[in-house]
Every structure is written in C-alpha cells, then in structure tokens.
C-alpha cells in the first residue's frame, strides 16, 4: 500500500478527509482487497483499544481482535501506551465502527441514547466523528453482527479490608490537607460511581 493511500485512510479515520475524497476512497475500498483488509484491521484494533477503555466486543469478534493484536506487535505496544496515544486511536475506532460495518461486516452500532454513565467516547465517535456517508453505508449494510456499547467496565475501587481501613484512617491524620481529602474520598468511593473515562469538567454555576 502506498503512503498516499495510507495517509488517506488515516485521514478518513480522523474524519479529516474531504467528502469527495472520502467517497472515492470508499469506492476503492469496495474493490481493493488489500486496502479492505487494512481497513478491517484498523477497525478491530480500534475496537479492541476501546474495549479496554469501556467498549466490549462480542465474543467472536474479541477472538479476532486478540489474533490481530498478537500479529501486530507495534500495535499491541500501542495498546498499552500512553493515554494520548489511546486518544489518538479513538476517532480511528469510532470511524471504524461505522465503515467496518460495510467492509468487515461485523459491526452494528446499537442505536440507543447513552445513559449519563455510558462510555461517551464511544457514543461521540459514532455520532460526531464518523463521516455521514459512512453512517449511511453502515445502515444500508444490514448489520449482521451486533456491536455492543455497554457501560464502561468498572475500574474497581478496592473495597478496603478492615485492616487497610484502619491503616488509612490512621495515616490520614498525617497527610497534608489536600492529600487527606483525596485519600479519604477514595476511601469513601464505592463501586457505584458513574463511569467517566476522563476527569469531568467542573460543574459551572454552582460555586460562586
């Protein structure tokens, strides 16, 4: 695959490809098996990366994702890389969801209004980052398999044992005020917290 095509693919994932070029590339994707395979790989890798951060694939697809990642060491490394690197892949994954329906024929985005705790990145990429043409293509493709957008998996706050609770309470006396508040807040935190993959912005207007 030449660099220009690769660049166009990347731009398409980033929703930065002009609509006309996007249409041309989509046509080429429909007849270029190599390009199609490349695109499909992007799709599952992107989905896999999102899976870690809140999106779960169905079981069959998950197996293929694992195989692809194992076959692609560089991408596997990127999977555990810096948050910014993951963020780079998010638009990629979002576009992959839609276009992958047409090309990989495995994904279908469940049409549902996200609950406040749903993984908003997944929703955003599906509604905002995906080129409109791709969304239409996805709808027309019939969507044979389902692509589930569940709530983010809980990053479980460790429920403290009584012993650890004792230690935390005793230690809190010697923490700086800010650290103590952080520590005790974490201690208070249960698994009922609402998922949010990034720190939420401050609620405005309530502190004056």
């Amino acid at each position: 695959m030449n660099e220009e095509l690769d660049s166009q693919l990347s731009a398409m994932f980033d929703d930065e490809l002009a609509p006309g070029e996007c249409e041309l590339l989509a046509r080429r994707l429909s007849r270029d098996e190599q390009l199609k395979a490349r695109w499909g790989r992007y799709a599952v890798i992107g989905a896999a990366i999102r899976s870690e951060r809140g999106v779960r694939l169905n079981a069959a697809l998950a197996g293929r994702v694992s195989a692809v990642i194992l076959a692609e060491p560089a991408l596997a490394a990127a999977h555990g890389a810096h948050r910014a690197a993951v963020r780079w892949w998010q638009p990629l994954a979002g576009a992959a969801v839609a276009v992958g329906v047409a090309l990989v024929s495995v994904l279908w985005l469940r049409a549902q209004v996200p609950f406040a705790g749903a993984p908003r990145n997944a929703h955003l990429t599906a509604t905002a980052s995906v080129p409109a043409a791709a969304v239409v293509a996805a709808a027309a493709a019939g969507a044979p398999d389902s692509y589930v957008v569940p709530r983010a998996p809980a990053v479980r706050a460790m429920v403290p044992s009584t012993e650890l609770a004792n230690y935390v309470v005793a230690h809190s006396v010697f923490s700086s005020p800010v650290a103590r508040r952080n520590l005790l807040s974490a201690f208070m935190t249960s698994e009922s917290g609402t998922a949010a993959e990034e720190p939420p912005d401050e609620p405005q207007g309530n502190v004056h």
Binding site: E191, G193, A196, P200
Partner: peptide, 9 residues
C-alpha cells in the same frame, strides 16, 4: 465530585 480511575462519585 471525586474522579479517579474512570469513576465519578
């Protein structure tokens, strides 16, 4: 609000 590890409480 307390945010940590993807959770808000």
């Amino acid at each position: 609000s307390h945010w940590h590890g993807g959770r808000v409480e």
